[in-house]
Protein backbone atom coordinates (compact mmCIF):
# COMPACT_ATOMS: atom_id res chain seq x y z
CA UNK A 1 0.00 0.00 0.00
CA UNK A 2 2.75 2.42 0.99
CA UNK A 3 4.58 1.72 -2.25
CA UNK A 4 1.49 2.94 -4.04
CA UNK A 5 0.15 5.75 -1.89
CA UNK A 6 3.35 7.54 -0.84
CA UNK A 7 4.70 8.09 -4.38
CA UNK A 8 1.27 9.38 -5.43
CA UNK A 9 1.31 11.90 -2.60
CA UNK A 10 4.90 12.84 -3.42
CA UNK A 11 4.11 13.55 -7.08
CA UNK A 12 1.05 15.56 -6.06
CA UNK A 13 3.15 17.35 -3.40
CA UNK A 14 5.71 18.34 -6.04
CA UNK A 15 2.90 19.84 -8.13
CA UNK A 16 1.45 21.63 -5.12
CA UNK A 17 4.80 23.24 -4.21
CA UNK A 18 5.21 24.38 -7.81
CA UNK A 19 1.66 25.71 -7.84
CA UNK A 20 2.10 27.55 -4.52
CA UNK A 21 5.12 29.31 -6.02
CA UNK A 22 3.66 30.21 -9.40
CA UNK A 23 -0.13 30.03 -8.78
CA UNK A 24 -0.42 29.51 -12.55
CA UNK A 25 -3.24 26.97 -12.73
CA UNK A 26 -5.30 28.30 -9.83
CA UNK A 27 -5.28 31.88 -11.14
CA UNK A 28 -5.96 30.75 -14.72
CA UNK A 29 -9.02 28.71 -13.73
CA UNK A 30 -10.39 31.26 -11.26
CA UNK A 31 -10.05 34.37 -13.42
CA UNK A 32 -11.20 32.67 -16.61
CA UNK A 33 -14.30 31.19 -14.95
CA UNK A 34 -15.23 34.55 -13.43
CA UNK A 35 -14.69 36.30 -16.75
CA UNK A 36 -17.03 33.78 -18.39
CA UNK A 37 -19.60 34.43 -15.64
CA UNK A 38 -19.54 38.15 -16.37
CA UNK A 39 -19.79 37.60 -20.13
CA UNK A 40 -22.64 35.11 -19.72
CA UNK A 41 -24.56 37.60 -17.57
CA UNK A 42 -24.48 40.01 -20.53
CA UNK A 43 -25.52 37.29 -22.94
CA UNK A 44 -28.40 35.78 -20.97
CA UNK A 45 -29.57 38.74 -18.80
CA UNK A 46 -30.44 36.80 -15.61
CA UNK A 47 -33.70 37.73 -13.90
CA UNK A 48 -35.38 36.29 -10.82
CA UNK A 49 -37.50 34.02 -13.04
CA UNK A 50 -34.88 32.56 -15.38
CA UNK A 51 -31.82 32.43 -13.13
CA UNK A 52 -32.39 28.80 -12.14
CA UNK A 53 -32.45 27.92 -15.82
CA UNK A 54 -29.31 29.92 -16.66
CA UNK A 55 -26.98 29.59 -13.68
CA UNK A 56 -26.19 25.81 -13.71
CA UNK A 57 -25.30 25.86 -17.40
CA UNK A 58 -23.13 28.96 -17.27
CA UNK A 59 -21.40 27.82 -14.09
CA UNK A 60 -20.42 24.40 -15.43
CA UNK A 61 -19.54 25.55 -18.93
CA UNK A 62 -17.25 28.17 -17.39
CA UNK A 63 -15.61 25.65 -15.07
CA UNK A 64 -15.21 23.17 -17.93
CA UNK A 65 -13.53 25.67 -20.25
CA UNK A 66 -11.40 27.06 -17.44
CA UNK A 67 -10.42 23.50 -16.52
CA UNK A 68 -9.26 22.82 -20.09
CA UNK A 69 -6.87 25.78 -19.80
CA UNK A 70 -5.62 24.53 -16.43
CA UNK A 71 -5.02 20.98 -17.72
CA UNK A 72 -3.01 22.30 -20.65
CA UNK A 73 -0.86 24.29 -18.28
CA UNK A 74 -0.21 21.36 -15.93
CA UNK A 75 1.33 19.04 -18.51
CA UNK A 76 3.14 21.80 -20.39
CA UNK A 77 5.01 22.47 -17.15
CA UNK A 78 6.07 18.81 -17.09
CA UNK A 79 7.14 18.89 -20.72
CA UNK A 80 9.34 21.98 -20.26
CA UNK A 81 13.01 21.21 -19.61
CA UNK A 82 12.41 17.45 -19.78
CA UNK A 83 10.70 17.16 -16.42
CA UNK A 84 8.44 14.41 -17.75
CA UNK A 85 11.48 12.23 -18.54
CA UNK A 86 12.60 12.63 -14.94
CA UNK A 87 9.17 11.57 -13.78
CA UNK A 88 9.32 8.51 -16.05
CA UNK A 89 12.67 7.53 -14.55
CA UNK A 90 11.11 7.31 -11.07
CA UNK A 91 10.95 3.73 -9.81
CA UNK A 92 7.15 3.72 -9.81
CA UNK A 93 4.54 2.29 -12.14
CA UNK A 94 2.78 4.50 -14.68
CA UNK A 95 -0.55 4.42 -12.88
CA UNK A 96 1.13 5.94 -9.82
CA UNK A 97 2.25 8.86 -11.99
CA UNK A 98 -1.29 9.12 -13.29
CA UNK A 99 -2.87 9.24 -9.85
CA UNK A 100 -0.26 11.75 -8.66
CA UNK A 101 -0.97 14.10 -11.55
CA UNK A 102 -4.70 13.51 -11.15
CA UNK A 103 -4.60 14.36 -7.44
CA UNK A 104 -2.72 17.60 -8.12
CA UNK A 105 -5.14 18.72 -10.83
CA UNK A 106 -8.14 17.75 -8.72
CA UNK A 107 -6.89 19.86 -5.80
CA UNK A 108 -6.18 22.89 -8.01
CA UNK A 109 -9.61 22.73 -9.59
CA UNK A 110 -11.37 22.26 -6.26
CA UNK A 111 -9.50 25.14 -4.66
CA UNK A 112 -10.54 27.42 -7.55
CA UNK A 113 -14.14 26.15 -7.35
CA UNK A 114 -14.32 27.00 -3.64
CA UNK A 115 -14.20 30.61 -4.83
CA UNK A 116 -15.98 30.28 -8.17
CA UNK A 117 -19.23 28.67 -6.96
CA UNK A 118 -19.99 31.18 -4.14
CA UNK A 119 -19.00 34.09 -6.41
CA UNK A 120 -21.45 32.86 -9.06
CA UNK A 121 -24.13 32.59 -6.38
CA UNK A 122 -23.47 36.21 -5.44
CA UNK A 123 -23.26 37.46 -9.04
CA UNK A 124 -26.48 35.67 -10.04
CA UNK A 125 -28.16 36.25 -6.70
CA UNK A 126 -29.19 32.70 -5.73
CA UNK A 127 -28.76 30.67 -2.55
CA UNK A 128 -26.50 27.64 -2.80
CA UNK A 129 -26.65 26.62 0.86
CA UNK A 130 -27.38 22.94 0.31
CA UNK A 131 -25.36 19.86 1.15
CA UNK A 132 -25.90 18.57 -2.40
CA UNK A 133 -23.79 21.34 -3.98
CA UNK A 134 -20.40 20.23 -2.56
CA UNK A 135 -21.23 16.59 -3.40
CA UNK A 136 -21.91 17.47 -7.04
CA UNK A 137 -18.89 19.80 -7.27
CA UNK A 138 -16.51 17.17 -5.86
CA UNK A 139 -17.84 14.28 -7.97
CA UNK A 140 -17.83 16.35 -11.16
CA UNK A 141 -14.31 17.57 -10.52
CA UNK A 142 -13.05 14.02 -9.90
CA UNK A 143 -14.51 12.85 -13.22
CA UNK A 144 -13.32 15.86 -15.14
CA UNK A 145 -9.81 15.70 -13.70
CA UNK A 146 -9.71 11.93 -14.37
CA UNK A 147 -10.27 12.29 -18.12
CA UNK A 148 -8.46 15.65 -18.20
CA UNK A 149 -5.21 14.17 -16.85
CA UNK A 150 -5.27 11.38 -19.44
CA UNK A 151 -6.04 13.62 -22.40
CA UNK A 152 -3.66 16.39 -21.42
CA UNK A 153 -0.87 13.79 -21.28
CA UNK A 154 -1.84 12.74 -24.81
CA UNK A 155 -2.23 16.25 -26.20
CA UNK A 156 0.97 17.67 -24.72
CA UNK A 157 2.92 15.78 -27.38
CA UNK A 158 0.72 16.65 -30.35
CA UNK A 159 0.95 19.60 -32.67
CA UNK A 160 -1.50 22.41 -31.79
CA UNK A 161 -2.20 20.88 -28.39
CA UNK A 162 -4.37 23.81 -27.28
CA UNK A 163 -6.88 22.79 -29.95
CA UNK A 164 -6.61 19.02 -29.54
CA UNK A 165 -7.32 18.93 -25.80
CA UNK A 166 -10.84 20.42 -25.88
CA UNK A 167 -11.70 18.49 -29.06
CA UNK A 168 -10.93 15.19 -27.32
CA UNK A 169 -11.95 16.10 -23.79
CA UNK A 170 -15.32 17.82 -24.25
CA UNK A 171 -17.26 15.07 -26.08
CA UNK A 172 -16.01 12.47 -23.58
CA UNK A 173 -17.04 14.75 -20.68
CA UNK A 174 -20.61 15.18 -21.94
CA UNK A 175 -22.14 12.81 -19.33
CA UNK A 176 -20.57 14.64 -16.39
CA UNK A 177 -21.44 18.07 -17.78
CA UNK A 178 -25.08 16.99 -18.23
CA UNK A 179 -25.17 15.43 -14.74
CA UNK A 180 -23.52 18.44 -13.07
CA UNK A 181 -25.86 20.94 -14.75
CA UNK A 182 -29.03 18.95 -14.08
CA UNK A 183 -28.00 18.06 -10.53
CA UNK A 184 -27.23 21.68 -9.70
CA UNK A 185 -30.50 22.78 -11.27
CA UNK A 186 -32.60 20.34 -9.29
CA UNK A 187 -30.97 21.61 -6.08
CA UNK A 188 -31.53 25.26 -7.02
CA UNK A 189 -35.17 24.54 -7.84
CA UNK A 190 -35.51 23.50 -4.22
CA UNK A 191 -36.95 20.07 -5.04
CA UNK A 192 -33.99 17.72 -5.23
CA UNK A 193 -36.09 14.67 -6.11
CA UNK A 194 -34.07 13.45 -9.06
CA UNK A 195 -30.71 14.29 -7.58
CA UNK A 196 -29.70 10.73 -6.62
CA UNK A 197 -29.62 9.54 -10.23
CA UNK A 198 -27.30 12.39 -11.23
CA UNK A 199 -25.05 11.64 -8.27
CA UNK A 200 -25.09 7.96 -9.25
CA UNK A 201 -24.20 8.83 -12.84
CA UNK A 202 -21.33 11.06 -11.68
CA UNK A 203 -20.01 8.40 -9.30
CA UNK A 204 -20.19 5.69 -11.99
CA UNK A 205 -18.39 7.93 -14.49
CA UNK A 206 -15.67 8.72 -11.92
CA UNK A 207 -15.01 5.07 -11.09
CA UNK A 208 -15.04 3.87 -14.72
CA UNK A 209 -12.73 6.57 -16.02
CA UNK A 210 -10.31 6.55 -13.09
CA UNK A 211 -9.76 2.82 -13.65
CA UNK A 212 -9.68 3.05 -17.46
CA UNK A 213 -7.33 6.03 -17.47
CA UNK A 214 -4.96 4.41 -14.96
CA UNK A 215 -4.82 1.29 -17.16
CA UNK A 216 -4.16 3.15 -20.40
CA UNK A 217 -1.86 5.85 -19.02
CA UNK A 218 1.17 3.59 -19.44
CA UNK A 219 0.57 3.43 -23.18
CA UNK A 220 0.44 7.22 -23.36
CA UNK A 221 3.71 7.84 -21.54
CA UNK A 222 5.73 5.07 -23.19
CA UNK A 223 8.81 6.50 -24.92
Amino acid sequence: MNYFLIPILQIAYKDIILELRTKDIFVTILIFALLMGVIFSFVFVPTKQNVVLILPGTLWVSITFAGVLGFNRSLVLEKDKGNLDGLLLCPVTRDVIYFGKFLGLFLFMISAEIFIVPLYAVLYNVSILDVGIPVIVILTTIGFAAVGTLFSAICVNTRSREVMLPILLLPVSVPIIVAAVEGTRSILEGSPVGIERWVQLLAAFDVIFLVLAAFTFGAVLEE
Partner: peptide, 27 residues
Protein backbone atom coordinates in the same frame (compact mmCIF):
# COMPACT_ATOMS: atom_id res chain seq x y z
CA UNK B 1 -0.74 4.57 -29.21
CA UNK B 2 -2.68 7.78 -28.51
CA UNK B 3 -5.39 6.80 -30.97
CA UNK B 4 -5.68 3.37 -29.34
CA UNK B 5 -6.29 5.00 -25.95
CA UNK B 6 -8.87 7.33 -27.49
CA UNK B 7 -10.48 4.39 -29.33
CA UNK B 8 -10.98 2.57 -26.02
CA UNK B 9 -12.15 5.60 -24.02
CA UNK B 10 -14.60 6.70 -26.72
CA UNK B 11 -16.17 3.25 -27.04
CA UNK B 12 -16.55 2.80 -23.27
CA UNK B 13 -18.12 6.26 -23.11
CA UNK B 14 -20.90 5.54 -25.63
CA UNK B 15 -23.30 3.72 -23.25
CA UNK B 16 -22.68 6.35 -20.55
CA UNK B 17 -23.52 9.16 -22.97
CA UNK B 18 -26.65 7.29 -24.03
CA UNK B 19 -27.73 6.73 -20.43
CA UNK B 20 -27.10 10.36 -19.49
CA UNK B 21 -29.12 11.66 -22.43
CA UNK B 22 -32.01 9.34 -21.54
CA UNK B 23 -31.98 10.79 -18.02
CA UNK B 24 -31.73 14.26 -19.53
CA UNK B 25 -34.71 13.59 -21.80
CA UNK B 26 -36.89 12.64 -18.86
CA UNK B 27 -36.04 16.05 -17.44
Amino acid sequence: RYAAVMGIVAFVNVPIVYYSTILWRTV
